[in-house]
Design a protein around this nucleic acid. Structure first.
Lengths: 148, 148
DNA sequence: GCGTTTGGTTTCATAATGCAACTAGAAAGT
DNA sequence: ACTTTCTAGTTGCATTATGAAACCAAACGC
């Protein structure tokens, strides 16, 4: 993955995030990690991507602290890729992508799989952007302040 | 952009979303669109990407209904790229990317630019994943149900 | 009408991705 | 202990995407 953040965008957090996770495979790997996958072979089988590509992606994700290599949970000599706290904090991004996909990327007949609260079995609430006051905000209600 | 959703992932909304917007430039274009940019030249100057690449990305985004070509707002014969409702609904994804970047992609000394509520001037609330009951959920509290 | 700006297209070089064959170390069977 | 299989890669090569620069036509500004 090439760092493409140009100078004029360098202080934009969106650009910085995309430098870390802004390609198809990285986010799919992270999605699978949230589903509980931890082994090279699991990711490879699930995603069907070339092994050399998977190698570079996993290495990048470990390198930027989203995944870490830990001893295998089954006691074998192999190692597993586990989400760090930094990686687990990507959860809202995945949920946002999921909810948008549920809304817009399925034809009327198709049924997507659903993210549910384990306890209630109910789908999770739709993410909402809010002001500190709790008021709901859309994009027109907000602006980016160059510094602070 | 190549459709890479494999069969086993075809019913995952995350994969579907990434088919539409899962590359660096597309999301950067959408970010700029949220900042109010509408013209080819504006995107090109802001992002510094090659014009042929911008052409294909804009065409893809129009093709999947995230942007639409509208008559120029200044009355000229040129046309502008405007976010559709489908595009505006990407807002939570951008906010999630931004908040993660703010937290993790800046060194202690660096100050990111900030997304603020226009009215109060305050940064927006951190996005939270919640159950229908309102209880906060993390990734361990949730699971994906194959169909419904 | 004439030069400039806008929004592209075309061509060619370079970089990323994908595929298949190969490999070292660990595990499992016998 | 020895062989086989499994896991997690690496290597080499073909294909595809990306990027830089030159070129171009329609629209605009004067």
């Amino acid at each position: 993955m090439v760092k493409r953040t140009s100078l004029e965008n360098a202080d934009c957090p969106v650009a910085r995030s995309l430098d870390a996770i802004g390609d198809w495979w990285s986010l799919m790997i992270i999605r699978d990690a949230f589903l509980g996958m931890r082994r090279f072979g699991e990711f490879q089988k699930s995603l069907g991507l070339a092994k050399n590509i998977l190698t570079t992606r996993l290495r990048t994700l470990v390198g930027c602290g989203i995944l870490e290599l830990v001893p295998a949970s089954d006691g074998s000599a192999y190692r597993e890729y586990a989400l760090t706290q930094k990686g687990r904090d990507l959860f809202p991004i995945l949920v946002a992508l999921r909810q948008w996909g549920e809304t817009y990327a399925f034809a009327p007949g198709e049924v997507p799989n659903f993210l549910v609260d384990r306890k209630s079995g109910q789908p999770v609430q739709k993410l909402e952007v809010r002001a500190t006051s709790g008021r709901r905000l859309n994009s027109f209600d907000t602006e980016v302040r160059p510094r602070q």
